[in-house]
């Protein structure tokens, strides 16, 4: 197992390299650059700007220069937020996204698992339909609808929370709820399906035959096997949720990392695009590794040799 984990950790390097290479050339292929604006910059000034950022060099040279920087752990200065480096931006904003994300994830897992198990314990009953219909609500109402609704209700009308911003601990609640609701619905659906998949399998029947109480069978056997699809989904979901969401951060005005994924691309803030992409790639690899380890735990038939 240790060997397997080490091997996987080592694979981060080639994965990041490939991601960096493809992203670098992809974003440079796209029309528009960081210095384009409605008031077009005169040609000569554009030359000055490009020279300042080494963008007048041939692309392969810029690529090598960039890789050299990254190898030293330096992601370079942001094109848009000129007084900040990409390292600083990630260090400043990731903790915010991570806190909102962890809380949202926790909430999503609790609600999702409970309603999934609840529904699966008596399939095609009223409780099944009700909890699934409810979880569908979470999927149909995207965060850009739920967020403003929550804000209107809990902040403007009831005044329990601040409308937006990031000053007090309670400011984390509404964004985390908004972010978690959709994932809760996903988890509920996947958990229900996973449990129904295993519930009729032989080892569960055997456990029942042995006369184990219902709840013990559920916890010890059914859940273990039934959580597989949820866990598979959890890898990418956790990476996405921890790095924040553009929609939620923009609605609640939170200084998180999430909004930079889309905005840096729209701004053609090349260094920030690269930095955020590499960062999320790193998180995805790590999360998937955790998930794969969890597989082995959940299903003894899986082993990594």
């Amino acid at each position: 197992m240790t060997k397997y984990i080490l091997k996987r950790l080592l694979s981060i390097i080639p994965v990041l390299w490939v991601v960096a290479t493809i992203t670098f050339f992809l974003m440079r292929l796209a029309p528009g650059g960081p210095f384009d604006s409605e008031k077009q910059v005169p040609e000569e000034i554009l030359h000055n700007l490009e020279a300042k950022y080494h963008m007048d060099e041939p692309l392969p040279m810029q690529y090598v220069r960039y890789l050299g920087m990254v190898a030293k752990g330096d992601l370079g200065p942001s094109f848009r937020y000129t007084s900040r480096t990409v390292n600083e931006i990630i260090a400043e904003t990731f903790p915010v996204s991570a806190i909102v994300g962890l809380l949202g994830l926790f909430y999503a897992l609790v609600i999702g698992l409970i309603s999934g198990i609840f529904a699966a314990s008596k399939p095609n009953s009223a409780r099944d339909y009700l909890s699934m219909a409810f979880s569908m609500l979470g999927i149909c109402l995207p965060s850009f609808v739920i967020g403003p609704l929550f804000m209107l209700l809990f902040a403007v009308k009831l005044e329990w929370f601040n409308v937006s911003g990031w000053a007090e601990p309670k400011d984390v609640v509404l964004p985390a709820l908004t972010l978690g609701t959709m994932y809760a619905a996903y988890f509920a659906r996947l958990t229900r399906a996973g449990i129904l998949d295993v519930i009729k399998q032989d080892y569960i029947r055997t456990a029942h035959a042995k006369g184990l109480p219902e709840w013990l069978v559920m916890v010890r056997h059914t859940l273990k096997g039934g959580l597989l699809p949820t866990v598979s989904f959890l890898g990418p979901a956790a990476a996405a949720i921890l790095t924040g969401s553009l929609v939620v951060e923009s609605i609640f005005n939170i200084p998180g990392l999430g909004r930079f994924f889309v905005q840096s691309a729209l701004n053609r803030d090349y260094t920030l695009v690269m930095g955020t992409v590499l960062f999320v790639a790193f998180l995805i690899v790590v999360m998937n590794l955790l998930v794969d380890v969890a597989y082995a735990f959940l299903n003894p038939r899986i082993s990594y040799d």
Binding site: V15, V18, V19, I22, T23, L26, M27, L29, A30, P236, A239, F261, V262, A265, L266, V273, V277, L278, V280, A281, I284, V285, N288
Partner: peptide, 11 residues
Amino acid sequence: EILYSLPFIFF
């Protein structure tokens, strides 16, 4: 994992 990480907007 690589495909997951790539910025979809540019695609």
